[in-house]
């Protein structure tokens, strides 16, 4: 059984001219230990989809299942990392990391231990008593990451986590996220990354869900079997990037590729394929 099942999700918004359909029937699965990226043109509702998955927003129709059980309230098995960091400016870094912990009903000892652990693994030691405004964007997003990891979620949801950062910082932070993901001692079981950046998706994810323009649907789910660490300069990486670009811009898989994505056969052979 898949960890998360996304089943025929539809989302409409009311507008001045009747309803607008944002998401029009999206289905896919997220497996245990899956690093899944969702890419698509801006406005295709991928961030909305992520919120529907956690239960922050309601779908107009369709269903999300987590370990077989429908998600009908905000799931505390998942934790979100926000594009804008969404840190409470009046709480210290330590208190921000503790933000989600208090709500879990853990013992104070357990909470204290969690805070220390995740402040440490994200490299935030030394900033415990700082306030978010004292920190650079990169450091702030580490706090966002620590806050999410500290609740030990089964699924880490990341909504454009690097797009509010300068290019160099984003480059460094992506590498750190991958390092944390590799660590078997750390949560989560699976990651869902929403991004508009195709290269970012391909550099990080095991599979990429490609969504169409609004009203969006899934154009293709592309497995990324390039070996890690991914070499962005490699021929295979370029090919896959081009393939995804053409998918998105043309709105359908190129005729040569067929319904099932071809690149998985032609492109590399890393052992990381969880399909």
């Amino acid at each position: 059984m898949a960890l998360i099942e996304v089943r025929d999700i539809k989302k409409d918004y009311p507008s001045h001219h009747g309803t607008i359909s944002i998401i029009n029937g999206v289905s896919f699965d997220v497996a245990d230990s899956d690093f899944l990226a969702i890419v698509g043109p801006s406005g295709c509702g991928k961030s909305t989809l992520l919120r529907i998955i956690q239960g922050l927003e309601r779908a107009t129709s369709g269903e999300i299942r987590f370990r077989g059980r429908p998600v009908d309230a905000v799931s505390n098995e998942m934790a979100m990392v926000f594009q804008s960091f969404a840190l409470m400016p009046w709480l210290t870094i330590k208190e921000n990391v503790a933000f989600g912990l208090t709500a879990r009903g853990w013992t104070p000892e357990k909470i204290a231990a969690q805070i220390d652990r995740y402040i440490s693994v994200t490299g935030l030691v030394g900033f415990e008593e700082a306030y978010p405004r004292e920190l650079s964007g990169g450091m702030r997003q580490r706090v966002g990451l620590a806050r999410a990891l500290a609740v030990e979620p089964a699924v880490l949801l990341m909504d454009e986590p690097f797009s509010a950062l300068d290019a160099l910082t984003a480059e460094g932070l992506r590498e750190e996220v991958l390092q944390l993901w590799r660590d078997p001692e750390l949560p989560p079981e699976a990651v869902i990354l929403v991004t508009h950046n195709i290269e970012e998706a391909l550099a990080m994810a095991d599979r990429v869900v490609v969504m169409s323009h609004r009203p969006s649907r899934v154009l293709s789910v592309v497995p990324v079997t390039l070996s890690r660490p991914r070499e962005r300069k490699s021929e295979a990486f370029y090919e896959l990037t081009d393939y995804l670009y053409s998918l998105i811009t043309e709105g359908s898989p190129p005729p040569s590729a067929g319904a099932k994505p071809a690149p998985s056969e032609t492109l590399s052979t890393g052992p990381g394929d969880t399909q």
């Binding site: 230990s33 204290a112 652990r117 415990e128 590799r182 078997p184 052992p271 969880t274």
Partner: peptide, 28 residues
């Protein structure tokens, strides 16, 4: 900071990569 978390998690830090601990994540 009360308690030093470093010691507890540190062993995994450099040896973590490809230590074959059985988790599916070490495909990395």
């Amino acid at each position: 900071a009360p308690g030093t978390p470093g010691a507890r998690v540190a062993p995994a830090a450099s040896g973590q990569v490809g230590d074959g601990s059985g988790s599916p994540k070490d495909l990395a």
